[in-house]
Design a protein around this nucleic acid. Structure first.
Lengths: 153, 153
DNA sequence: AAGCATTCTGCATAAATATGCGCATAACTA
DNA sequence: TAGTTATGCGCATATTTATGCAGAATGCTT
């Protein structure tokens, strides 16, 4: 058993990091590690590095910060939210998006414009979009992002 | 003489970097060095590191990018632009800003809110604001930023 | 349940980035 | 112009960040 600590788990830890960054930039990952320790999370710099990447944190002159949920990109999607019908992964590298009839081109364009890094490319047919992703993780991510953008709309 | 190259000089090089980043994120500083070399600039990673810091570049998941001129902060200043009368450094750590009568508080507040990292703190009197900066370089920077924000207004 | 794939992690270390120092200029002062 | 101060830079290196790898835990399939 390798889970000595109380509250430990990835999701909680990441939420803690989000919270931490909300209260101001963190100069280094080492600093984040310390801050987490105080909150009761025992994590290494390795994990923090991975967490920050996953959270999409950016490093500014003063340290790590969270982008305010890439409003640009989210908007692109939000605008076509009601054209979406279904989201279905097909293997780790392909996401199939069903849309309203004739709307696929429009949705594909929005995805292109969103410029999310996990998207390799899109093609839009009539009511179906194929979206190629770099990996299974990227695909999960993308899925979460789209769902989030939609629900916020 | 240590300036073997043709177009060399800090300002030009930084402009080249700005241009480079405008065309897309740069994964690493090494990449920037190569790109600069192709444009005829011979710079080391050290210089690029300093340049990027100076330009206020941020490192995202995909690489170095330029913030779109911190619209938030610039706006804060733009709004009080016509209240400004004079900008005068007093030593490397103090910038004295003359404003319209009675407007100093307002300007000081705007500066506070702009949250530029080179500003240590401000005090506003009646028609004068004292702005403490971290260094001479920071002061130059700040001056440039204010002037830019003003001219854009 | 056994086997197999996946996720999460830490460790060790590679890769990338920042910086102290010293030198060459440039700028300023008197 | 000579002295003094500040700037820009590269080199070497410290610091920081990313990652290949292997082990533990979990979940899925049969």
């Amino acid at each position: 058993m390798l889970m000595p600590n109380s509250i430990d788990n990835q999701a909680d830890r990441r939420e803690a990091i989000r919270e931490l960054l909300r209260s101001g930039p963190a100069a280094t990952q080492k600093f984040v590690v310390s801050a987490l320790l105080e909150k009761g999370f025992d994590a290494t710099q390795s994990s923090v590095s991975r967490d920050l990447k996953e959270l999409g944190a950016i490093k500014t002159t003063t340290g790590y910060e969270l982008e305010p949920a890439n409003s640009e990109a989210a908007n692109e999607i939000a605008e076509v939210a009601d054209l979406l019908r279904d989201l279905r992964p097909a293997g780790p590298n392909l996401l199939v998006i069903k849309t309203a009839i004739g709307a696929a081109q429009r949705v594909a364009l929005a995805l292109d414009r969103s410029a999310w890094p996990e998207i390799v490319g899109n093609v839009g047919g009539d009511d179906t979009v194929f979206t190629a992703t770099t990996s299974a993780a990227a695909q999960r991510n993308l899925l979460a992002r789209i769902e989030s953008a939609v629900s916020h709309s």
